[in-house]
Amino acid sequence: METENPRREALVGTAGCLTAFAGALAGIVLWAPHGKGGLLDGFEGASNWNVLWVGLPLMILGGIAAALAVFFLVRGDWKRAVGLVAAVAVLFGLGVGVDALAGAPRPECYDPC
């Protein structure tokens, strides 16, 4: 399959890979407070490994899918963008369903009295 401009395709492919990598990093950064809370400060000192084994992969995949959805929206590829938004919704639903971020940091409430 011949392409008209292989340099442009290589550039777009590289930009897509960098976008996916940035999305994965964003997912890790957003997961970090939850992971720390679940692994170190679990209920009664017990670690919640579900946060690591389920939460981290879901956040990484969600970050990649969200970043690529934006990438495809910018490029005008609406079908792929909508598919990736649906994938983010499924990953979100799965994460809520299995309570993957059960160690989420909660704001401290103090008794005003």
Rank of each mutant, 00 (worst) to 15 (best):
V54D: 12
V51E: 00
L73N: 11
S47C: 00
L58D: 04
R75N: 07
F43S: 05
L11R: 05
A102V: 01
E4V: 11
G76K: 03
G63H: 03
W31L: 05
G83P: 05
F92D: 15
D41R: 11
V85I: 07
L25I: 02
R8E: 15
P105S: 01
G13H: 06
V98N: 03
A10S: 15
L101N: 07
F92Y: 14
N48V: 05
V29R: 09
E4R: 14
F21R: 12
G42A: 02
G55V: 03
T14V: 15
M1S: 11
G38P: 06
L101Q: 10
L11N: 14
V98S: 02
S47I: 04
G45V: 05
G76I: 01
W78M: 15
V12L: 15
W31N: 03
G27F: 07
Y110M: 10
L73S: 10
K36R: 14
G55C: 04
G23C: 09
K36E: 09
A32I: 12
L52V: 02
A66D: 07
A46V: 10
V51L: 12
F72V: 10
I64P: 06
A69K: 00
I28V: 12
A24H: 08
I60A: 08
H34A: 01
A69P: 04
G97S: 05
D77P: 10
V88H: 00
A104I: 00
